[in-house]
C-alpha cells in the first residue's frame, strides 16, 4: 500500500503525511488513540491525542507521566497539514472514530464501535469517507445481539431469583466500559451493589466525567460477617475461581459479553449464566455502519477480518484485510475468540 494516506507499518496504522500513528502497538512519537482499552492505548509513546471524554480513563491506564492532549468530538486538529477529528464510536466512554482529511481525501478509522445506544457514552455517529477502516470482532452472521433492554431485564431478574434461592450474585464484566454500562442498567432497588477493587478507579473516572451511575460499594469495605445474600457484585472475569470469591458464601455467577452468544463459550467458563451484551457492533451493525459511511474502500481489522472482507468483496466492494498485532494468520479468531481480550 505505497501511496495511501494511512499505511500499515510495524507499529500499526501510520499516516506519513501527518507523521502520526493511530492506536500504535509500539511506542511512537505521536499516537492518536481511539479509546482507552489496553489493546488500543499502549503505553510508551511520546505524545497522545485523544477525546476529551476519554481523558480520565486514559490517564488511569497510561499513568500520570503520559503526555495526553485532548480534543472535543468534531473539533478539527491540524497535524502537519492533515486535518484530524474525533467522532463518537459508541464503544465506551470517550471512544472515537478518527477522521483524517488530506488534500480532499477522507479516511475514517473506526477503532472499536457499536451502533446500539449506551447511556454511558456518546452514540455512534456515521461519518462519510472514502476509506473506512473497520473493526470486525464479531464479524460473523451468528453474532446478532438481542435488545439490550431485554438483556438488562434478564440480569435484574436473575439477581432477584438468586436472592430467592439464597445466593449472592457475582456478575463478571470487563472492567472498563462494560462494567459501568451494566451498573447503569442495574436496578438499585433490588439490593446493594458492590464492585471488585479493580473496578473502583475506573468507575470513579466515569462518575467524574459526568456519567450517572447508581451508588456502589467496594467489596473490601463490607464488615466481617456481612450478609451477601442480596448483593450484586461486579468483578472482572479474572476474579472467577479465585479465593476472593469465597467470602460471599453461596453465589451464582454470570458473565456479560458478546461471546456469550455461543453456547460453547458460555459452558466452558463453568458459569451459571451468560448474558449477551457487547460493546461491539454485531453483524448487522457492522454492515449498517459500513454502508452509512458511503466508503469506496473498506479495510477490515481486529477480529473476523477475512470473513467480513470476503463478504464485502462479494457485495461488490473494494475490501481488504489489515492485519492486527494478533499473531497467527490474518483474520483468525484466536485471541478474541477465547474471550480473554478486554474488548468484548
Amino acid at each position: 500500500m505505497p501511496d495511501t494516506l494511512l499505511q500499515l507499518t510495524e507499529s500499526g496504522l501510520y499516516c506519513p503525511a501527518g507523521d502520526f500513528a493511530i492506536d500504535p502497538w509500539r511506542p511512537v512519537a505521536r499516537a492518536i488513540v481511539t479509546h482507552a482499552h489496553s489493546d488500543h492505548a499502549r503505553p510508551g509513546s511520546r505524545a497522545y491525542l485523544a477525546t476529551r471524554d476519554s481523558e480520565r480513563v486514559l490517564r488511569t491506564r497510561l499513568g500520570p507521566d503520559a503526555r495526553i492532549e485532548t480534543a472535543a468530538y468534531g473539533e478539527v486538529v491540524s497535524i502537519n497539514g492533515v486535518d484530524v477529528s474525533f467522532h463518537p464510536a459508541g464503544h465506551i466512554l470517550g471512544s472515537a472514530q478518527v477522521r483524517i482529511a488530506y488534500r480532499g481525501e477522507v479516511w475514517v478509522v473506526s477503532g472499536d464501535y457499536k451502533t446500539e445506544p449506551d447511556v454511558t457514552c456518546a452514540p455512534f455517529e456515521a461519518v462519510r469517507c472514502h476509506t473506512f477502516v473497520t473493526e470486525s470482532t464479531f464479524g460473523l452472521p451468528v453474532y446478532r445481539w438481542p435488545a439490550q433492554e431485554r438483556v438488562l431485564a434478564q440480569i435484574n431478574d436473575w439477581w432477584r431469583g438468586n436472592q430467592e434461592a439464597g445466593r449472592a450474585s457475582i456478575l463478571y464484566a470487563y472492567a472498563l466500559g462494560k462494567a459501568q454500562r451494566l451498573l447503569a442498567g442495574l436496578d438499585p432497588a433490588i439490593g446493594p451493589i458492590f464492585i471488585h477493587g479493580a473496578l473502583i478507579r475506573l468507575t470513579e473516572d466515569y462518575r467524574a466525567s459526568g456519567v450517572s451511575l447508581p451508588p456502589t460499594r467496594y467489596t473490601g469495605e463490607a464488615p466481617r460477617g456481612f450478609d451477601w445474600l442480596h448483593a450484586m457484585i461486579l468483578a472482572p472475569p479474572s476474579a472467577h475461581g479465585t479465593p476472593w470469591m469465597r467470602k460471599f458464601g453461596p453465589v451464582a455467577t454470570g458473565f456479560a459479553s458478546g461471546w456469550m452468544r455461543i453456547r460453547g463459550t458460555r459452558r466452558r467458563r463453568a458459569l451459571d449464566r451468560g448474558f449477551v451484551l457487547s460493546d461491539h457492533a454485531d453483524w448487522p451493525g457492522l454492515l449498517a455502519a459500513i454502508d452509512a459511511t458511503g466508503a469506496e474502500r473498506v479495510w477490515v481489522t481486529h477480529g473476523y477480518a477475512a470473513v467480513l472482507a470476503r463478504w464485502l468483496q462479494e457485495q461488490g466492494r473494494d475490501a481488504a484485510v489489515v492485519p492486527t498485532r494478533f499473531e497467527g494468520e490474518m483474520g483468525d479468531d484466536g485471541a478474541a475468540e477465547t474471550g480473554e481480550g478486554e474488548e468484548a
Partner: peptide, 13 residues
C-alpha cells in the same frame, strides 16, 4: 467453524 455445533449454528443464523 466458530460455533462448533451444527444445530446451534443453524439456530443462530
Amino acid at each position: 467453524d466458530a460455533v462448533g455445533d451444527f444445530a446451534e449454528t443453524v439456530t443462530l443464523l
